[in-house]
């Protein structure tokens, strides 16, 4: 062995040792976020200032809404107590820097998952909990149930937005005709559809839901289930705590899987006696799964008991029976043609 090869191999060994050292250092201190949560005794959740149905303080100042319920579900997973969570309002301008700065452990505030945010900003994202996107609001008298059935309709879009371009793309693709009406001011939207100047309006679905509540007869209008643009809303966490991210993921999945099983807040106790091995594993009747992953075997049971399954969370805050009145659409279970899907609990 010549000196130079010996030198190189020593160098390589040292490099390897350093690398392993670095890795073990990371795994030893893995979970700074979760450690901090456990030490503190509650989870800090950032939510939007107030978006109707999604997160808003109720009359007594308590936070409610679709995103808020997922925050409570997380508190159940970690502490088995839906109240061990503190919600902090944050504006769209500062929510991501605030997450970075450690103001909260998780951001549940309508963050759209994009590739830039993942690569450049060092955030990790949980599963999509709401598929938002550009929608179409129509007068029910048109008798249209799907956007593809719109033919020759007059459609209002706000000028200078991507909404205007997306709707043009959509009709180019479907090959149907439509008449665009450009509306300058978003306040004019309401008047345009009420006066019949347009048959339909297009905007982000969550905006349309609010415009709809503003109309004199909201029940005469409906937001069609299609989305012309992709706005997948996800929980966001800081990078560097894989265990915390897993807890976020599987807390969301638990609500989804429960709906797939047909388990609701009301009937969850009846399922405890189920003979289905998958349900036994899921609810922690069979404790082997929980032991293997180091969580309370009954964490899914506790979540459903405290906040309900995905469908219940959806319906309670933003579903068709609420003022916001969203159809499930893409946010329906995959078994019913939607995109909401949970990996298996095994």
């Amino acid at each position: 062995m010549s000196i130079s090869t010996k030198f190189v191999s020593t160098l390589a060994t040292a490099g390897l040792a350093l690398t392993i050292g670095a890795f073990s250092a990371v795994s030893a201190s893995a979970g700074p976020t979760l450690d901090a949560i456990q030490q503190r005794g509650f989870i800090k959740v950032g939510v939007g200032g107030s978006s109707p149905g999604f997160s808003f303080p109720d009359a007594s100042g308590k936070w409610q809404g679709f995103f808020v319920d997922f925050g409570r579900a997380l508190a159940v997973t970690v502490f088995n107590n839906p109240d061990k969570v503190e919600f902090t309002s944050s504006s769209p301008q500062q929510r991501l820097p605030a997450l970075q700065a450690g103001e909260f452990d998780i951001l549940l505030s309508g963050v759209t998952q994009t590739i830039t945010r993942a690569f450049k900003l060092g955030f990790h994202f949980g599963p999509v909990i709401f598929y938002d996107g550009q929608g179409i609001l129509v007068n029910k008298s048109l008798g249209v149930a799907k956007a593809v059935e719109l033919d020759g309709a007059t459609i209002g879009a706000q000028s200078g937005t991507t909404g205007e371009l997306n709707i043009a793309d959509f009709f180019r693709k479907t090959g149907k005709a439509y008449k665009p009406v450009v509306i300058e001011d978003s306040n004019e939207f309401q008047k345009a559809i009420e006066s019949g100047r347009v048959d339909a309006l297009t905007q982000d679905a969550s905006d349309l839901a609010i415009i709809r509540t503003q109309l004199a007869k909201p029940d005469d209008y409906v937001v069609l289930p299609e989305r012309l643009s992709k706005e997948p809303l996800v929980p966001a966490v800081r990078g560097g705590d894989d265990r915390w991210l897993e807890i976020v993921d599987w807390t969301v999945y638990a609500t989804i899987q429960a709906e797939e099983f047909g388990i609701t807040q009301k009937n969850v106790d009846e399922f405890l006696t189920s003979e289905d091995p998958a349900i036994k594993r899921f609810l922690g009747v069979d404790t082997s799964l929980g032991e293997a992953i180091g969580l309370d075997p009954k964490f899914a049971y506790n979540i459903i008991k405290a906040v309900g399954n995905y469908g219940e969370i959806f319906d309670r805050s933003i579903g068709p029976s609420t003022k916001v009145g969203f159809q499930r659409g893409y946010n329906d279970l995959w078994t019913r043609g939607g995109l909401i899907y949970s990996p298996p609990f095994r």
Binding site: G49, S50, P52, F56, P57, D58, S90, I210, Q214, K323
Partner: peptide
């Protein structure tokens, strides 16, 4: 301070119009 998520008078007024489903918008 509304920018950093505090509910001063103006932000509370804005939130009042978007929080209660009975009084949206």
């Amino acid at each position: 301070v509304a920018i950093i998520g505090m509910f001063d008078l103006l932000n509370a007024a804005r939130t009042a119009a978007s929080a209660d489903q009975a009084w949206l918008g």
